[in-house]
Simulated assay, not measured.
Amino acid sequence: MQDRAEETRKAVLQAAAHLFFERGYAATSISDISERSGRTSGAIYFHYANKEQLALAVVHAHFAAWPSVIARMEATLGPALEKLVGLSFEVARAFRDDVLIRAGARLWAERGSIDVEMPPPFVDWITTVERLLTRARTEGDLAPRAEPSRDAPTLVAAFFGLHTLSDVLDDRLLIEDRLTNFWLLFLPGIQADPAPRDLLAKARGHMAVGRPAPLPDGRTR
Rank of each mutant, 00 (worst) to 15 (best):
P120I: 07
A17H: 04
A195S: 05
T127L: 15
V168Y: 08
F63S: 02
D151C: 10
A158R: 00
L200A: 12
P148L: 00
T220R: 13
G189W: 01
L56E: 01
V168R: 13
A208I: 12
W183A: 04
I175D: 03
S149Y: 11
D171M: 01
F20H: 02
G24K: 06
W125S: 14
D3W: 02
T134R: 08
P153K: 00
L107I: 03
Y25G: 05
G78Y: 07
R172Q: 15
F122E: 00
T76I: 15
G205A: 09
K51S: 07
A195W: 06
A5W: 06
D217C: 04
H163A: 09
D141C: 06
H47T: 00
G189H: 13
P67D: 10
L84Y: 06
T180K: 13
G189I: 00
A208V: 01
G78E: 11
R178H: 14
T164M: 10
W66A: 03
V12Q: 10
W183Y: 12
D3K: 12
A26M: 13
A26P: 01
L87I: 06
L19C: 11
E130L: 01
R219L: 04
A94L: 15
F89C: 10
H206K: 15
R39F: 13
F89D: 02
A75I: 11
A208D: 14
S113R: 11
A213Y: 10
S31L: 14
D141M: 08
A136N: 12
A92I: 03
R93P: 09
F20T: 00
S113L: 15
V123M: 09
G189L: 04
L87W: 04
E82I: 01
V129N: 02
F159N: 04
G112C: 06
R36Y: 11
A43S: 14
R135H: 11
E139A: 10
H163M: 15
D97P: 08
W125E: 06
L200M: 13
H18M: 03
A192T: 05
L77I: 02
D167P: 01
T127I: 14
G205Q: 09
L185V: 00
Y48F: 14
G78T: 00
S149H: 10
A43P: 03
Q2K: 15
V91W: 02
A57G: 02
T138V: 15
G140W: 06
L179W: 07
L155H: 01
L169V: 13
V99T: 14
V156Y: 08
A192E: 11
Y25F: 15
H62L: 12
E6I: 03
A65E: 06
G78C: 07
R96H: 09
L56P: 06
A43C: 14
V12K: 10
L165T: 11
F186D: 04
F186S: 03
F95I: 01
A11Y: 02
A26C: 13
L199H: 09
A192D: 08
F182Q: 02
K83V: 05
R131Q: 08
G218T: 03
S31W: 08
G218Y: 04
S29W: 00
D177M: 14
L169W: 09
V91Y: 02
D151W: 07
T220G: 07
S34K: 05
G42M: 07
Q2M: 13
M73P: 03
L187P: 07
R72E: 14
A157H: 14
I70E: 09
L173S: 15
F89R: 09
D98S: 07
